[in-house]
Design a protein around this nucleic acid. Structure first.
Length: 447
DNA sequence: CTGCCATCC
DNA sequence: GGATGGCAG
Protein backbone atom coordinates (compact mmCIF):
# COMPACT_ATOMS: atom_id res chain seq x y z
CA UNK A 1 0.00 0.00 0.00
CA UNK A 2 2.74 2.39 0.95
CA UNK A 3 4.49 1.56 -2.27
CA UNK A 4 1.35 2.26 -4.28
CA UNK A 5 1.01 5.59 -2.52
CA UNK A 6 4.55 6.56 -3.47
CA UNK A 7 3.93 5.55 -7.05
CA UNK A 8 0.80 7.65 -7.17
CA UNK A 9 2.49 10.62 -5.57
CA UNK A 10 5.32 10.39 -8.03
CA UNK A 11 2.97 10.20 -11.00
CA UNK A 12 1.07 13.18 -9.67
CA UNK A 13 4.28 15.13 -9.21
CA UNK A 14 5.39 14.30 -12.74
CA UNK A 15 2.01 15.33 -14.05
CA UNK A 16 2.10 18.66 -12.25
CA UNK A 17 5.71 19.26 -13.29
CA UNK A 18 4.78 18.45 -16.86
CA UNK A 19 1.92 20.92 -16.72
CA UNK A 20 4.14 23.62 -15.39
CA UNK A 21 6.64 22.93 -18.12
CA UNK A 22 3.97 23.25 -20.75
CA UNK A 23 2.58 26.52 -19.50
CA UNK A 24 2.74 29.08 -22.27
CA UNK A 25 5.42 31.68 -21.70
CA UNK A 26 3.34 34.76 -21.42
CA UNK A 27 6.03 37.08 -20.19
CA UNK A 28 9.38 37.67 -21.80
CA UNK A 29 12.27 37.05 -19.44
CA UNK A 30 13.18 40.00 -17.30
CA UNK A 31 15.94 41.99 -18.90
CA UNK A 32 18.59 43.92 -17.13
CA UNK A 33 20.59 46.72 -18.65
CA UNK A 34 24.29 46.00 -18.38
CA UNK A 35 26.20 48.41 -16.20
CA UNK A 36 27.57 51.34 -18.17
CA UNK A 37 24.74 51.31 -20.70
CA UNK A 38 22.96 53.01 -22.32
CA UNK A 39 25.95 54.55 -23.98
CA UNK A 40 24.84 58.04 -24.90
CA UNK A 41 28.20 59.12 -26.32
CA UNK A 42 28.03 62.25 -24.23
CA UNK A 43 31.43 61.78 -22.59
CA UNK A 44 33.63 62.00 -25.64
CA UNK A 45 34.71 64.53 -28.21
CA UNK A 46 35.93 63.76 -31.68
CA UNK A 47 35.51 66.09 -34.60
CA UNK A 48 37.46 64.24 -37.27
CA UNK A 49 36.52 61.08 -39.13
CA UNK A 50 40.02 59.68 -38.71
CA UNK A 51 40.06 56.43 -36.74
CA UNK A 52 40.61 56.94 -33.03
CA UNK A 53 39.70 55.48 -29.66
CA UNK A 54 37.38 57.24 -27.25
CA UNK A 55 36.82 56.29 -23.64
CA UNK A 56 33.16 56.78 -22.83
CA UNK A 57 30.89 55.93 -19.94
CA UNK A 58 30.55 52.28 -20.88
CA UNK A 59 34.14 51.69 -21.93
CA UNK A 60 36.45 52.34 -24.87
CA UNK A 61 35.11 52.57 -28.39
CA UNK A 62 36.80 52.80 -31.75
CA UNK A 63 35.33 55.34 -34.17
CA UNK A 64 36.62 54.71 -37.67
CA UNK A 65 35.30 57.08 -40.30
CA UNK A 66 33.06 58.25 -37.54
CA UNK A 67 32.96 61.11 -35.07
CA UNK A 68 31.00 62.54 -32.17
CA UNK A 69 28.37 64.74 -33.78
CA UNK A 70 27.15 67.88 -32.09
CA UNK A 71 25.82 69.90 -34.99
CA UNK A 72 22.22 70.84 -35.68
CA UNK A 73 22.15 68.27 -38.44
CA UNK A 74 23.07 65.45 -36.07
CA UNK A 75 20.10 63.53 -34.74
CA UNK A 76 20.82 63.11 -31.06
CA UNK A 77 19.48 62.65 -27.58
CA UNK A 78 20.99 65.28 -25.29
CA UNK A 79 23.86 67.04 -27.04
CA UNK A 80 25.95 64.36 -28.70
CA UNK A 81 25.60 61.24 -30.84
CA UNK A 82 27.85 59.24 -33.13
CA UNK A 83 27.93 60.13 -36.79
CA UNK A 84 29.23 57.33 -39.01
CA UNK A 85 29.93 58.07 -42.61
CA UNK A 86 29.72 55.58 -45.45
CA UNK A 87 31.99 52.56 -44.92
CA UNK A 88 32.71 53.72 -41.38
CA UNK A 89 32.11 51.86 -38.18
CA UNK A 90 31.71 52.13 -34.45
CA UNK A 91 33.24 49.30 -32.42
CA UNK A 92 33.29 48.35 -28.75
CA UNK A 93 36.82 47.74 -27.51
CA UNK A 94 35.74 46.13 -24.26
CA UNK A 95 33.94 42.90 -23.48
CA UNK A 96 30.67 42.15 -21.79
CA UNK A 97 30.84 38.70 -20.29
CA UNK A 98 27.22 37.78 -19.66
CA UNK A 99 24.53 36.28 -21.89
CA UNK A 100 23.06 38.92 -24.18
CA UNK A 101 19.29 38.94 -24.73
CA UNK A 102 18.71 42.25 -26.43
CA UNK A 103 20.45 45.18 -28.04
CA UNK A 104 18.80 48.51 -28.64
CA UNK A 105 19.87 51.77 -30.18
CA UNK A 106 18.48 54.90 -31.76
CA UNK A 107 19.30 55.50 -35.40
CA UNK A 108 18.58 58.07 -38.05
CA UNK A 109 20.01 59.92 -41.00
CA UNK A 110 22.32 62.89 -40.64
CA UNK A 111 20.90 66.09 -42.10
CA UNK A 112 19.30 65.53 -45.46
CA UNK A 113 21.48 62.59 -46.45
CA UNK A 114 19.52 59.90 -48.28
CA UNK A 115 18.78 56.37 -47.21
CA UNK A 116 21.59 54.79 -45.21
CA UNK A 117 22.45 51.08 -45.22
CA UNK A 118 23.91 49.70 -42.05
CA UNK A 119 24.48 46.49 -40.12
CA UNK A 120 24.97 45.45 -36.52
CA UNK A 121 27.72 42.90 -35.88
CA UNK A 122 28.97 41.13 -32.81
CA UNK A 123 32.03 39.22 -31.69
CA UNK A 124 32.19 36.53 -29.03
CA UNK A 125 35.96 36.45 -28.87
CA UNK A 126 36.97 39.96 -27.95
CA UNK A 127 36.92 41.27 -31.48
CA UNK A 128 38.99 38.62 -33.19
CA UNK A 129 36.15 37.34 -35.33
CA UNK A 130 32.81 38.95 -36.15
CA UNK A 131 29.39 37.81 -37.28
CA UNK A 132 26.24 39.67 -38.18
CA UNK A 133 23.57 40.24 -35.61
CA UNK A 134 21.05 42.07 -37.74
CA UNK A 135 21.49 41.38 -41.41
CA UNK A 136 21.33 44.38 -43.76
CA UNK A 137 19.24 47.29 -42.47
CA UNK A 138 18.32 50.65 -43.92
CA UNK A 139 16.95 53.85 -42.51
CA UNK A 140 15.73 57.12 -43.94
CA UNK A 141 14.51 58.42 -40.59
CA UNK A 142 14.89 62.14 -40.05
CA UNK A 143 14.33 61.69 -36.34
CA UNK A 144 16.10 59.25 -34.07
CA UNK A 145 14.18 55.98 -34.27
CA UNK A 146 14.50 53.12 -31.81
CA UNK A 147 15.77 49.81 -33.09
CA UNK A 148 15.50 46.73 -30.90
CA UNK A 149 17.14 43.42 -31.68
CA UNK A 150 16.33 40.38 -29.59
CA UNK A 151 19.09 37.84 -29.64
CA UNK A 152 20.68 35.01 -27.73
CA UNK A 153 24.40 35.38 -27.41
CA UNK A 154 25.98 33.14 -24.78
CA UNK A 155 28.31 34.61 -22.22
CA UNK A 156 31.70 35.24 -23.73
CA UNK A 157 33.98 38.09 -24.65
CA UNK A 158 31.15 39.85 -26.41
CA UNK A 159 31.46 43.10 -28.32
CA UNK A 160 29.27 44.93 -30.77
CA UNK A 161 29.91 46.93 -33.88
CA UNK A 162 27.77 49.17 -36.05
CA UNK A 163 28.78 49.46 -39.68
CA UNK A 164 27.58 52.00 -42.16
CA UNK A 165 27.57 49.81 -45.25
CA UNK A 166 26.54 52.54 -47.67
CA UNK A 167 28.84 53.16 -50.61
CA UNK A 168 27.39 56.45 -51.84
CA UNK A 169 29.17 59.49 -50.40
CA UNK A 170 27.30 61.52 -47.81
CA UNK A 171 25.12 58.77 -46.47
CA UNK A 172 25.79 59.42 -42.83
CA UNK A 173 24.21 57.51 -39.96
CA UNK A 174 23.53 58.90 -36.52
CA UNK A 175 23.59 56.44 -33.64
CA UNK A 176 22.73 57.19 -30.03
CA UNK A 177 21.86 55.49 -26.76
CA UNK A 178 23.30 52.09 -27.50
CA UNK A 179 22.09 49.57 -24.91
CA UNK A 180 22.91 45.96 -24.16
CA UNK A 181 20.66 43.78 -22.02
CA UNK A 182 21.23 40.53 -20.18
CA UNK A 183 18.84 38.31 -18.25
CA UNK A 184 18.08 39.41 -14.72
CA UNK A 185 20.25 37.61 -12.26
CA UNK A 186 23.20 37.07 -14.53
CA UNK A 187 26.37 37.71 -12.67
CA UNK A 188 26.49 41.17 -14.15
CA UNK A 189 30.00 42.42 -14.24
CA UNK A 190 32.95 40.33 -15.14
CA UNK A 191 34.54 41.01 -11.82
CA UNK A 192 36.67 37.94 -11.57
CA UNK A 193 36.68 36.68 -15.14
CA UNK A 194 39.42 36.00 -17.58
CA UNK A 195 40.03 38.88 -19.92
CA UNK A 196 41.69 39.26 -23.27
CA UNK A 197 45.39 38.44 -23.13
CA UNK A 198 46.02 41.22 -25.62
CA UNK A 199 43.50 43.55 -24.03
CA UNK A 200 45.77 46.58 -23.88
CA UNK A 201 47.24 46.27 -27.35
CA UNK A 202 49.61 44.41 -29.65
CA UNK A 203 53.00 45.94 -28.87
CA UNK A 204 54.61 45.25 -32.24
CA UNK A 205 51.55 44.97 -34.49
CA UNK A 206 52.35 41.30 -34.93
CA UNK A 207 50.27 39.48 -37.53
CA UNK A 208 49.53 35.81 -38.18
CA UNK A 209 51.01 35.75 -41.63
CA UNK A 210 54.20 33.95 -42.55
CA UNK A 211 55.27 37.04 -44.46
CA UNK A 212 55.84 38.46 -40.98
CA UNK A 213 58.22 35.72 -39.90
CA UNK A 214 60.02 37.74 -37.27
CA UNK A 215 56.90 39.30 -35.83
CA UNK A 216 54.48 36.42 -36.11
CA UNK A 217 51.33 36.58 -33.99
CA UNK A 218 50.31 33.38 -32.24
CA UNK A 219 47.18 33.37 -30.11
CA UNK A 220 46.32 30.72 -27.56
CA UNK A 221 43.55 30.80 -25.00
CA UNK A 222 46.23 31.11 -22.33
CA UNK A 223 48.39 33.88 -23.84
CA UNK A 224 49.30 35.67 -27.03
CA UNK A 225 52.74 36.18 -28.44
CA UNK A 226 54.83 37.56 -31.22
CA UNK A 227 57.30 34.91 -32.37
CA UNK A 228 60.59 35.59 -34.06
CA UNK A 229 61.78 32.96 -36.51
CA UNK A 230 65.38 34.15 -36.62
CA UNK A 231 65.94 34.27 -32.86
CA UNK A 232 63.73 31.19 -32.31
CA UNK A 233 62.17 32.85 -29.29
CA UNK A 234 59.20 35.07 -28.75
CA UNK A 235 59.60 38.81 -29.15
CA UNK A 236 57.01 39.16 -26.42
CA UNK A 237 54.34 37.18 -24.66
CA UNK A 238 51.25 38.96 -23.36
CA UNK A 239 48.75 37.64 -20.83
CA UNK A 240 46.04 38.60 -18.40
CA UNK A 241 46.33 37.47 -14.81
CA UNK A 242 43.80 37.40 -12.04
CA UNK A 243 42.44 34.81 -9.65
CA UNK A 244 40.23 33.37 -12.39
CA UNK A 245 43.39 31.90 -13.94
CA UNK A 246 44.77 30.49 -10.72
CA UNK A 247 44.10 27.02 -9.37
CA UNK A 248 45.91 24.01 -8.01
CA UNK A 249 46.75 22.00 -11.11
CA UNK A 250 50.22 20.46 -10.70
CA UNK A 251 53.03 21.69 -12.87
CA UNK A 252 52.89 19.61 -16.05
CA UNK A 253 56.56 19.85 -17.05
CA UNK A 254 55.70 18.79 -20.59
CA UNK A 255 58.27 20.92 -22.37
CA UNK A 256 57.77 20.37 -26.10
CA UNK A 257 58.06 21.91 -29.53
CA UNK A 258 55.21 24.11 -30.68
CA UNK A 259 53.53 22.18 -33.51
CA UNK A 260 51.60 25.25 -34.61
CA UNK A 261 54.62 27.04 -36.02
CA UNK A 262 54.37 27.44 -39.80
CA UNK A 263 55.69 24.42 -41.66
CA UNK A 264 59.35 24.64 -42.52
CA UNK A 265 60.26 26.78 -39.52
CA UNK A 266 62.74 25.35 -37.06
CA UNK A 267 60.98 24.00 -34.00
CA UNK A 268 62.89 24.44 -30.77
CA UNK A 269 62.44 21.16 -28.96
CA UNK A 270 62.39 19.82 -25.44
CA UNK A 271 66.15 19.33 -25.18
CA UNK A 272 67.30 22.30 -27.24
CA UNK A 273 68.72 24.04 -24.16
CA UNK A 274 70.23 20.94 -22.56
CA UNK A 275 73.77 21.37 -21.28
CA UNK A 276 73.79 25.01 -22.33
CA UNK A 277 73.95 26.39 -18.81
CA UNK A 278 70.66 28.21 -19.40
CA UNK A 279 67.21 27.41 -18.02
CA UNK A 280 64.20 26.93 -20.22
CA UNK A 281 62.73 30.03 -18.66
CA UNK A 282 59.02 30.62 -18.99
CA UNK A 283 57.84 33.99 -20.23
CA UNK A 284 54.22 33.33 -19.24
CA UNK A 285 54.92 31.44 -15.98
CA UNK A 286 53.64 27.95 -15.33
CA UNK A 287 52.15 29.03 -12.03
CA UNK A 288 50.18 31.86 -13.67
CA UNK A 289 48.22 29.23 -15.60
CA UNK A 290 47.41 26.41 -13.19
CA UNK A 291 43.64 26.47 -13.41
CA UNK A 292 43.58 23.35 -15.55
CA UNK A 293 45.92 20.79 -17.08
CA UNK A 294 45.35 22.32 -20.50
CA UNK A 295 46.16 25.83 -19.30
CA UNK A 296 49.31 24.77 -17.50
CA UNK A 297 50.50 22.58 -20.34
CA UNK A 298 50.22 25.48 -22.77
CA UNK A 299 52.97 27.31 -20.91
CA UNK A 300 55.43 24.49 -21.63
CA UNK A 301 55.49 25.03 -25.37
CA UNK A 302 59.08 25.91 -26.21
CA UNK A 303 57.86 29.05 -27.97
CA UNK A 304 57.11 30.38 -24.47
CA UNK A 305 60.72 29.76 -23.38
CA UNK A 306 63.81 31.89 -23.43
CA UNK A 307 67.35 30.85 -22.42
CA UNK A 308 67.65 32.35 -18.96
CA UNK A 309 70.56 32.31 -16.56
CA UNK A 310 69.48 29.99 -13.73
CA UNK A 311 70.20 32.43 -10.93
CA UNK A 312 68.32 35.14 -12.76
CA UNK A 313 65.35 32.91 -13.57
CA UNK A 314 65.02 30.97 -10.37
CA UNK A 315 65.66 33.79 -7.98
CA UNK A 316 65.05 37.41 -8.87
CA UNK A 317 62.73 36.71 -11.82
CA UNK A 318 60.76 34.15 -9.88
CA UNK A 319 60.23 36.61 -7.04
CA UNK A 320 58.76 39.12 -9.45
CA UNK A 321 56.41 36.44 -10.80
CA UNK A 322 55.34 35.55 -7.29
CA UNK A 323 54.75 39.19 -6.51
CA UNK A 324 52.40 39.41 -9.48
CA UNK A 325 50.44 36.39 -8.29
CA UNK A 326 50.23 37.92 -4.84
CA UNK A 327 48.65 41.00 -6.38
CA UNK A 328 46.23 38.78 -8.33
CA UNK A 329 45.29 36.78 -5.26
CA UNK A 330 44.64 40.03 -3.42
CA UNK A 331 41.90 40.97 -5.88
CA UNK A 332 43.76 42.66 -8.69
CA UNK A 333 43.93 41.90 -12.35
CA UNK A 334 47.13 42.37 -14.24
CA UNK A 335 48.03 42.81 -17.88
CA UNK A 336 51.57 41.55 -18.37
CA UNK A 337 53.90 41.67 -21.34
CA UNK A 338 57.31 40.03 -21.13
CA UNK A 339 60.12 39.17 -23.47
CA UNK A 340 63.81 38.92 -24.21
CA UNK A 341 65.98 41.58 -25.75
CA UNK A 342 69.54 41.95 -26.93
CA UNK A 343 72.06 39.22 -27.38
CA UNK A 344 74.57 37.53 -25.10
CA UNK A 345 73.95 36.16 -21.63
CA UNK A 346 76.01 34.39 -19.00
CA UNK A 347 74.68 31.09 -17.69
CA UNK A 348 76.02 28.50 -15.29
CA UNK A 349 78.73 27.35 -17.68
CA UNK A 350 80.41 30.74 -17.44
CA UNK A 351 81.42 33.07 -20.22
CA UNK A 352 79.07 34.91 -22.51
CA UNK A 353 76.93 32.87 -24.89
CA UNK A 354 75.25 34.41 -27.88
CA UNK A 355 73.21 31.33 -28.77
CA UNK A 356 72.23 27.83 -27.69
CA UNK A 357 71.03 24.83 -29.66
CA UNK A 358 73.89 24.93 -32.12
CA UNK A 359 73.34 28.57 -32.95
CA UNK A 360 69.64 28.25 -33.58
CA UNK A 361 68.34 30.04 -30.47
CA UNK A 362 69.54 33.48 -29.48
CA UNK A 363 70.45 34.09 -25.85
CA UNK A 364 69.13 37.48 -24.75
CA UNK A 365 71.22 39.93 -22.78
CA UNK A 366 68.23 40.93 -20.67
CA UNK A 367 64.67 39.90 -19.96
CA UNK A 368 62.02 42.54 -19.43
CA UNK A 369 58.46 42.78 -18.22
CA UNK A 370 55.74 45.44 -18.20
CA UNK A 371 52.77 45.09 -15.85
CA UNK A 372 49.54 47.05 -15.46
CA UNK A 373 47.80 46.53 -12.11
CA UNK A 374 44.17 47.35 -11.40
CA UNK A 375 41.50 46.09 -9.06
CA UNK A 376 39.22 43.38 -10.45
CA UNK A 377 36.35 44.83 -12.46
CA UNK A 378 34.92 45.15 -15.93
CA UNK A 379 35.56 47.51 -18.81
CA UNK A 380 39.25 47.56 -18.05
CA UNK A 381 40.27 49.95 -20.81
CA UNK A 382 37.95 52.58 -19.44
CA UNK A 383 39.08 52.10 -15.86
CA UNK A 384 42.78 52.56 -16.48
CA UNK A 385 43.66 56.16 -15.80
CA UNK A 386 46.67 58.34 -15.22
CA UNK A 387 47.16 57.01 -11.71
CA UNK A 388 46.95 53.32 -12.54
CA UNK A 389 49.98 51.42 -11.32
CA UNK A 390 52.45 50.22 -13.92
CA UNK A 391 55.61 48.23 -13.19
CA UNK A 392 58.34 47.73 -15.75
CA UNK A 393 61.65 45.95 -15.23
CA UNK A 394 64.67 45.09 -17.35
CA UNK A 395 66.94 42.50 -15.74
CA UNK A 396 70.28 41.34 -17.14
CA UNK A 397 70.42 37.72 -18.22
CA UNK A 398 73.35 36.74 -16.11
CA UNK A 399 74.32 34.83 -13.01
CA UNK A 400 75.01 37.06 -10.07
CA UNK A 401 71.84 39.12 -10.16
CA UNK A 402 70.07 36.35 -8.24
CA UNK A 403 70.34 37.99 -4.85
CA UNK A 404 69.36 41.42 -6.10
CA UNK A 405 65.88 42.81 -5.62
CA UNK A 406 63.84 43.07 -8.81
CA UNK A 407 62.62 46.38 -7.47
CA UNK A 408 66.06 47.81 -8.16
CA UNK A 409 65.67 47.01 -11.86
CA UNK A 410 62.49 49.01 -12.35
CA UNK A 411 62.41 51.46 -15.22
CA UNK A 412 59.68 53.41 -16.96
CA UNK A 413 57.68 51.89 -19.79
CA UNK A 414 59.01 54.71 -21.95
CA UNK A 415 62.54 53.50 -21.32
CA UNK A 416 61.47 49.95 -22.02
CA UNK A 417 59.93 51.08 -25.29
CA UNK A 418 63.25 52.65 -26.24
CA UNK A 419 65.09 49.45 -25.37
CA UNK A 420 62.74 47.12 -27.21
CA UNK A 421 61.25 49.24 -29.97
CA UNK A 422 57.75 48.15 -28.96
CA UNK A 423 54.72 50.29 -28.16
CA UNK A 424 53.08 48.98 -25.02
CA UNK A 425 49.44 49.40 -23.98
CA UNK A 426 48.68 51.25 -27.18
CA UNK A 427 44.92 50.78 -26.92
CA UNK A 428 44.86 53.18 -24.01
CA UNK A 429 44.16 56.85 -24.71
CA UNK A 430 47.37 58.71 -25.45
CA UNK A 431 47.18 60.96 -22.42
CA UNK A 432 46.83 57.94 -20.15
CA UNK A 433 49.75 56.22 -21.86
CA UNK A 434 51.91 59.29 -21.51
CA UNK A 435 51.14 59.58 -17.81
CA UNK A 436 51.62 55.99 -16.75
CA UNK A 437 54.50 55.17 -19.06
CA UNK A 438 56.78 57.98 -18.04
CA UNK A 439 56.91 57.03 -14.37
CA UNK A 440 59.05 54.51 -12.57
CA UNK A 441 57.16 52.46 -10.01
CA UNK A 442 58.56 53.13 -6.56
CA UNK A 443 56.21 51.35 -4.20
CA UNK A 444 57.95 49.14 -1.65
CA UNK A 445 58.03 45.58 -2.96
CA UNK A 446 60.24 43.67 -0.51
CA UNK A 447 62.39 40.85 -1.92
C1' DC B 1 58.62 9.34 -15.21
C1' DT B 2 61.25 9.61 -11.07
C1' DG B 3 64.52 11.55 -8.30
C1' DC B 4 67.09 15.36 -7.22
C1' DC B 5 68.78 20.26 -6.42
C1' DA B 6 68.28 25.21 -5.05
C1' DT B 7 65.98 29.23 -3.20
C1' DC B 8 62.68 31.67 -0.63
C1' DC B 9 58.65 32.40 2.29
C1' DG C 1 58.04 22.19 5.22
C1' DG C 2 55.87 23.61 1.01
C1' DA C 3 55.92 26.17 -3.34
C1' DT C 4 58.23 27.37 -7.25
C1' DG C 5 61.97 27.44 -10.43
C1' DG C 6 64.46 24.01 -12.67
C1' DC C 7 67.94 19.80 -13.85
C1' DA C 8 69.57 14.87 -15.29
C1' DG C 9 69.23 9.99 -16.21
Amino acid sequence: MTRLYYLFAMLLAMFLWGCEDDLPIDTEPDLELISGFPEGFEAGSKSSYEAATLVLGSGAWLLDNALIGTSANDLKNDVKSVRIKEQGDLTMLFDVNVPIEKVSLDVGVYGTDGTVSYEIWFSSDAGNTWETLSGPLTTDAIQLTPLELNTTIPAGEVRFQIRNTSFTPNRRLNVDDFSVYTTTGSTGNNNTGRDNNLGLGNPSNAISDIISENNYLMTLPQYSMSYNRSTATANWVSWHLNNAWLGDTPRQDDFRANPDLPSGWYQVHEYSYSGSGFDRGHLCPSADRDGSVEDNSATFLMTNMVPQAPQQNQQIWRLLEEYCRTLAAAGNELYIVSGPRGSGGMGSNGGVSQTVDGGKVRVPSAVWKAIVVLPNGSNDLARINTSTRVIAVDIPNTQGVGNDSWGDYRISVDELEDLTGFDFFNLLPLDVQQAIESQVDDLPVGG
